[in-house]
């Protein structure tokens, strides 16, 4: 080409110019839009469209009928709450809780009950104080009532109506709802109590606890990992119960007292958070129940008499056992070393 012979610089300029013109031509069809946007002579807003669009998303109006949210004509947030509850919460919580139960049933069938290695020694060490046991059983009873009544509200429509009929289930649900509302207040007392009485033992020791988790607590075979008075699994349960408990208490109180005139959206959010926390704590609760009763020998007595067999302590909590093994006493006589009421045959 000729221009290339004259100078590369000139050629480059010509090319750039051509590109510019070309791109302008390409953009040409868009110009009317830009123009129309600025210079449109007639603006006809449709009052209807804007008004009703705003109304649909809970735009606040006013009403002579005074009350909570009465000025809101339409609030479609309830739809998200409905879909969460019906399409997510109910099925997925059933999978989770059912899954946990199935896993433990399977584990029990394969592994059986975890026995004390070498059998009981006949010598016991103190595991819990009396205050800890009282706090434990207080929270336990309150929680079981709340869990059962909560499950009635969650699954009753599908599980209990076919069994009891609509009228029968209505009675059950009425009792469940009332109990849940009133006993829930006791849970607000229980959670801080639980927090205080077990906090010293439940503080996380990173190295030991991480190793315990890496080894799966020794439940899936391999050697038993080192553990202090509480192992990482128990600490995890403690923190789930305490933190989950706080969330449950806060959201529960919001739901419990509609007389403070919190609006629907606050209620919907609280309800979602409340149910998620409840399902998580319940799933962990199933783990706790299995491992402290059916799943393991020699552990339940820690929460009844307050002491455990020294061989059990050695097997499951070796670091703790090393600290207190000198305090072991024969099963028949009450220990003097530990605090006195805890080792006596106190009812839980």
């Amino acid at each position: 080409m000729k221009c290339c012979k004259v100078s590369d610089f000139a050629c480059g300029r010509a090319l750039k110019g051509m590109l510019l013109v070309f791109s302008l031509v390409l953009l040409l069809p868009l110009f009317p839009y830009a123009f129309a946007e600025k210079h449109s002579p007639i603006v006809v807003p449709n009052p209807g469209t804007d008004l009703w669009r705003a109304v649909r998303h809970a735009s606040e109006g006013s009403s002579q009928v005074k009350g909570v949210d009465t000025g809101v004509l339409v609030d479609d947030n309830g739809k998200s709450w409905l879909e969460f509850r019906v399409k997510k919460l109910v099925p997925y919580s059933a999978y989770l809780l059912g899954g946990v139960l199935s896993v433990f049933l399977l584990y029990f069938l394969i592994r059986g009950r975890i026995k004390i290695e070498g059998g009981p020694s006949g010598r016991v060490v103190q595991r819990t104080t009396r205050i800890q046991r009282w706090a434990h059983w207080f929270v336990a009873i309150v929680f079981v009532i709340l869990m059962l009544t909560g499950l009635v509200m969650l699954y009753g429509r599908w599980v209990l109506i076919p069994l009891l009929g609509p009228d029968g289930f209505s009675g059950t649900a009425q009792v469940a709802k009332t109990l849940h509302d009133y006993v829930g207040v006791l849970f607000v007392v229980g959670v801080p109590l639980l927090f205080v009485v077990f906090i010293r033992e439940a503080l996380i020791k990173f190295k030991v606890d991480a190793m315990w988790i890496v080894k799966g607590g020794g439940y899936l075979g391999g050697s038993h990992p080192l553990s202090g008075k509480l192992n990482a699994g128990q600490k995890l349960w403690y923190w789930t119960a305490v933190l989950g408990g706080v969330v449950l208490c806060v959201t529960g109180l919001i739901l419990d007292f509609p007389n403070f005139e919190q609006g629907r959206e606050v209620m919907q959010t609280s309800h979602m958070v409340h149910t998620i926390a409840a399902v998580v704590v319940t799933a962990f609760f199933f783990v706790h129940i299995y491992l402290s009763t059916l799943g393991m020998e020699g552990v339940f007595r820690a929460m009844t008499t307050g002491n455990v067999d020294s061989n059990w302590a050695k097997q499951h909590h070796i670091l703790w056992y090393e600290e207190i093994k000198d305090q072991a006493v024969p099963e028949s006589e009450p220990s003097e070393a530990a605090d006195i009421p805890a080792t006596a045959k106190q009812p839980g």
């Binding site: 949210d69 009465t70 809101v72 004509l73 339409v74 609030d75 479609d76 309830g78 739809k79 709450w81 409905l82 509850r85 509200m153 609509p166 009228d167 209505s170 649900a173 009425q174 709802k177 509609p258 629907r264 209620m267 919907q268 309800h271």
Partner: peptide, 19 residues
């Protein structure tokens, strides 16, 4: 709705767009 069966839980109130 049947008031003999209703337990006053408020779920319908959360779900209803019209209050």
């Amino acid at each position: 709705h049947d008031k003999d069966i209703c337990i006053g839980c408020g779920y319908c109130f959360y779900a209803c767009p019209f209050g």
